[in-house]
Design a protein around this nucleic acid. Structure first.
Lengths: 159, 159
DNA sequence: GCTGAAAATTATGCATT
DNA sequence: AATGCATAATTTTCAGC
């Protein structure tokens, strides 16, 4: 589980540095923030081990030829929800999947190399999953803010 | 711009390693993949400099008290689209924003610390933006796959 | 674009406060 | 939890293939 640990402004600044470059050395960060090297290392470890921060690689779909992105709202019959979710998660095109407990809503994002594949997915693949209806979708050529760019407010860091 | 560079299976394996830990040393990765240290460093540099891969920090909203996430579909009058998008991007609650060129669709995700804030956002804040209508939304207590977890197919890497 | 070897930098382990 | 220090590991620089 992810607990609500308490982080301070040094943590916040470290997060900002790591956001620019997750491989930036602890000593470089320490210099930039005028903090102790050893402390910065300890903080990074704590941030990662607490689960509050993940240091990872994010791929640009365009660089790999995935030029079409679509956000889709689905409605699913409750009794077929589990199997529908399982099927959706098997599809590598699905880059995001979230569902509302106690509701029939599933929200997904999917990525494709061309329009034909995307149309096939919307028109054939999704409707063929038992209990699933496409409630709406939006083609999203431009993502202006991505989930990985999200930050809490500075005020969420005590100090 | 992000060009479609060509990457091979070594790049793919390096990406998989960096996904687990963006700070994993190049020598450790080289050992794991039985590749040359220097080569691994060159590849990492190339992946990052080409824009295909970003090495960054991703925060867990829960760890900072943001327990409510909602995916929202909006419809916007074309002539007010630009100003609506600008206003939405100013809101720190909005963790994702994408819009379809030539359509009226805007797709967003937003995060909140409690239900009241979220309801306020859905019921008051969004409708108060000129030209914006909430077309639908889904509360998403469970995100099963996140965008940062997305990977191209191994076949997308030549070799 | 891949690899090698020495120099510089960084990380780790252990200790103290 | 923060820090100092010695040692180990890694990265960088400059080079040749």
């Amino acid at each position: 589980m992810t607990k609500s640990a308490q982080f301070d402004l040094l943590d916040y600044q470290i997060i900002l540095e790591l956001r620019k470059d997750a491989r930036k050395s602890a000593s470089e960060i320490a210099r930039a923030l005028k903090a102790n090297e050893r402390t910065v290392r300890n903080r990074i470890d704590r941030l990662v081990e607490s689960g509050a921060v993940r240091l990872t690689s994010i791929l640009d779909p365009h660089a790999f030829g995935y030029v079409n992105t679509v956000d889709i709202f689905l409605e699913v019959d409750s009794d077929q929800e589990q199997s529908a979710i399982e099927q959706l998660l098997k599809m590598h095109e699905v880059s995001y999947l979230a569902y509302g407990l106690g509701t029939q809503d599933i929200s997904i994002e999917a990525r494709f190399k061309d329009n034909a594949e995307m149309r096939q997915f919307l028109g054939k693949v999704l409707p063929s999953i038992p209990g699933v209806r496409v409630k709406g979708y939006a083609l999203v050529p431009r993502i202006l803010r991505n989930i990985d760019e999200w930050l809490p407010k500075p005020e969420d860091f005590e100090g």
